[in-house]
Simulated scan of single mutants.
Amino acid sequence: MKRDALERNQVWLYLAAVVAGLGAGSVAPGLAPSMELLLWPSLALLLYATFTQVPLAHLPAAFRDMRFMSAVLVGNFLVLPVLVWGLTAFVPEDPAVQLGVLLVLLVPCTDWFITFAHQAGGDVRRAIVATPVVLVIQIVLLPLYLWLFMGDGLAVRLSAGRMAAAFLSIIVVPLVLAGLTERWAEQSGVRGERLIQRLGALPVPLLGFVVLLIAGSQVEAVLGSLDLFRGVLAPFVVFLAGAAVCGVVLGRAFSLPPDQARTLLFSFSTRNSFVVLPLALALPPGWEAAGLVIVFQSLIELFGMLLFLWLVPRVLMPFRGT
């Protein structure tokens, strides 16, 4: 299946992966240790393939259009964190659940939002240029947000050393390797371009495989968390609605044309779920709910994007005369 077809049908692929993983974990529970063993290298490969699609070498280009970048940064790192803080009042008081919600809602997407923006008639060039800036800033600010929302005791309760090891091995190393790959590709002409294109086809199937491994290795936790999922469904839906409103308001406040405003809205409404997923999976025993919450949010988000792909160009941000 080609990349475009994979991206159009990714929500169904992920749902099938969840069902397959739950089925495999239920029928053959002895597979759980093997699935857990495969999970970490699969995550590292997933993030490496994803990061190669982020133009890390072109960070300075992002600041040539300060109006669009200002809207992206203000919305993602000032306005939406306030919305997330308000939503935590409606999240179950379980610290693992709250951490999972914070992890996933505080980090803007740097990959599939480009696809959704393109499908909705957004400005893909600006989306691509903005992604490395958004990625770097979210990595820097996430610890600050968690400290503000959860307090000083968080690092002690979560084993900061274990989290740091996961961050370095699953996020930093793939990020550095992706940057080196991009530099080599730019110097290698057509051969390098082909490699980047081939790597670009990997994130969707790899994420499906990761979701299958999580569902299969955590089948008891998943089946035991149905009440938990009901408890976070409303906050996730409200976040999508709030992100859409934020996109419309800031698009008008910064006088962005419709294609740029559409890109802005999809930047606000999509989150970097599988970038923070390794951090959640590295948590000590008793915090498994954080990872499950992140996977659940990504599924809710994908259904929301199916709605937004119809709603944004037709109702929220139509071109003049349409």
Rank of each mutant, 00 (worst) to 15 (best):
R125N: 02
F167Q: 05
V276D: 01
M35L: 15
V172I: 12
F239M: 08
V27A: 15
V204P: 10
M150A: 12
S267V: 11
V133C: 10
L135E: 00
A261R: 12
L43P: 00
E301Y: 01
V18C: 15
P284A: 10
P313V: 04
R3M: 11
S267L: 11
L142K: 07
I214H: 05
E182S: 14
D227M: 01
A201I: 05
G251K: 05
S269T: 15
G75K: 09
L39Y: 10
S267D: 00
L73Q: 06
M35H: 09
V210P: 05
F68I: 01
V104D: 01
A290I: 06
A215E: 12
V248K: 14
C246K: 02
V204K: 11
L180G: 09
G321F: 13
L177R: 11
I214W: 00
A120E: 00
L31T: 04
P235Y: 10
F319V: 04
E7K: 12
L56H: 02
P55V: 02
V219H: 13
P205C: 00
G21P: 04
A243D: 02
Q187M: 07
V133F: 09
L135K: 08
T270A: 04
H118R: 15
V129W: 11
S188P: 07
F167H: 03
A243N: 04
P258S: 05
C109W: 09
R183P: 01
N272S: 12
V176D: 07
F116R: 01
R191Q: 12
T181Q: 10
P108W: 05
Q297S: 07
F51R: 03
P318W: 10
L146T: 08
M163G: 09
G231Q: 11
T110D: 01
R314D: 02
V249N: 06
V222H: 10
L6Q: 15
L78P: 05
F51M: 14
E36Q: 15
L80H: 09
L6W: 15
S70M: 02
